[in-house]
Amino acid sequence: MKLNGTIYHLEQPVILLDLLNEYGFQTQRIAVEMNGAIIPKATYHQVTVTDDDTLEVVSFVGGG
């Protein structure tokens, strides 16, 4: 599985929301693209990530 350009090995498929929490992302401040498609925030708890997937997680910090 590739996350923001780095390769990680997933022993088994995981739920996207669990993976995001495990890697310390604040889910209210991010946008997630999986294999080139945006993942709606409302479906993070339903989407399964496998070892073949490519994830891009964009995090926003405050200030403007």
Binding site: Q28, R29, I30, A31, I38, P40, K41, V58, F60, V61, G62, G63, G64
Partner: peptide, 16 residues
Amino acid sequence: FDNPVSKAVLVNTLLE
């Protein structure tokens, strides 16, 4: 925007 949650809301809404 200033607020990071507002940034993410706009980005997610428009990308979707």
